[in-house]
């Protein structure tokens, strides 16, 4: 009897240990594969990375090709996306957290945002093609691309901004009300400043996803062979600022990379790795910045 029990316990313990090792192995396996892929990209792309590569235009000769227009295009598109998605997303989040009554309208908005976050990115591209490009006559421009990525970023920005606003303790709001502040004054002067760190972190992470988005930009007809830069935003004649660049055709980094991958010549694949490495570094840098801001804002504010 006791021997049976000992055997049972020993067996259970053995299975327990085995499962622990299996879990560790699964984790190490997955993490190693992902790291291996990234290291491959780093090694291949590192061979191509140089100042010339960053400052040259695409070319039919792989060794002379570079990613300057793609880099400029990426920066300008992200600028449009940030300028449109941040105010809209934060405003929506403030409404949902601070104003929204528990009503059916609120429930519909919430389910809708959760669903939007799961819509495949290419579907956003199709909507932009069927709405921005033709009916609104925005064409295959930087403005169209930026707005398309805004559609993609908006749900993410709303979700993270809501989380940041939710962490502000209600005592802060009550103290402001007790001093006679109106609701909007409370939000503007207290809730938003306290949640800025969290909102910023979320916005940067959302933008870092948008930087690498390729599929929706393919559907709106982004070009990948662009041998010129968009018109400059600053001009020599008054009013000195120009918005013509918004309507210029453009290339972005992930499109450039895709274009080079699809070519049969090996030399272009090396260029693709180079563009991929730059893209990867940009994404990592943005995420690093986001983590740093979160870390700092958490350290500074103690409730």
């Amino acid at each position: 009897m006791t021997q049976d029990m000992h055997r049972l316990i020993a067996g259970n313990k053995r299975r327990d240990r085995f499962f622990g090792w299996a879990g560790l192995a699964a984790m190490v396996f997955a993490v190693t594969i992902l790291l291996l892929l990234l290291v491959t990209l780093g090694l291949e792309g590192g061979r191509r990375l140089s100042w010339e590569f960053l400052t040259s235009y695409p070319s039919r000769v792989p060794e002379r090709a570079g990613i300057l227009p793609a880099c400029v295009g990426t920066v300008l598109v992200m600028l449009v996306t940030a300028v449109t998605s941040v105010p809209l997303g934060v405003a929506a989040a403030v409404y949902l957290e601070e104003y929204a009554p528990k009503s059916r309208v609120t429930a519909v908005i919430e389910i809708n945002i959760a669903n939007l976050a799961g819509v495949p990115s290419i579907v956003y591209g199709l909507m932009a093609l069927g709405l921005f490009v033709y009916p609104l006559h925005l064409g295959h421009s930087i403005l169209t691309a930026g707005l398309t990525l805004t559609l993609l970023c908006l749900p993410v920005v709303i979700i993270v901004a809501r989380e940041a606003i939710r962490t502000v303790p209600s005592g802060i709001r009550e103290a402001a009300y007790a001093l006679g502040a109106t609701k909007w004054q409370t939000i503007r002067d207290h809730v938003l400043p306290y949640s800025t760190g969290g909102i910023l972190t979320g916005v940067i992470i959302a933008l870092s996803r948008a930087v690498g988005e390729t599929a929706p930009l393919i559907t709106i007809g982004a070009l990948s062979f662009i041998a010129f830069l968009p018109s400059p935003p600053v001009t020599a004649t008054p009013p000195f600022l120009s918005v013509r660049w918004l309507f210029d055709p453009f290339a972005v980094l992930p499109m450039q990379m895709f274009n080079w991958i699809s070519r049969p010549q090996e030399a272009f694949h090396l260029n693709a790795a180079g563009a991929g490495l730059v893209l990867m570094l940009v994404t990592l840098a943005m995420n690093g910045l986001a983590y740093y801001i979160r870390y700092r804002s958490r350290r500074r504010i103690r409730w």
Partner: peptide, 20 residues
């Protein structure tokens, strides 16, 4: 205005469904 911003997300869904 804030409600309008929140409703814009519903607008995106309607836009997607409408265009498709």
């Amino acid at each position: 205005l804030l409600l309008l911003a929140a409703l814009s997300s519903v607008g995106i869904t309607l836009g997607i469904v409408g265009v498709l």
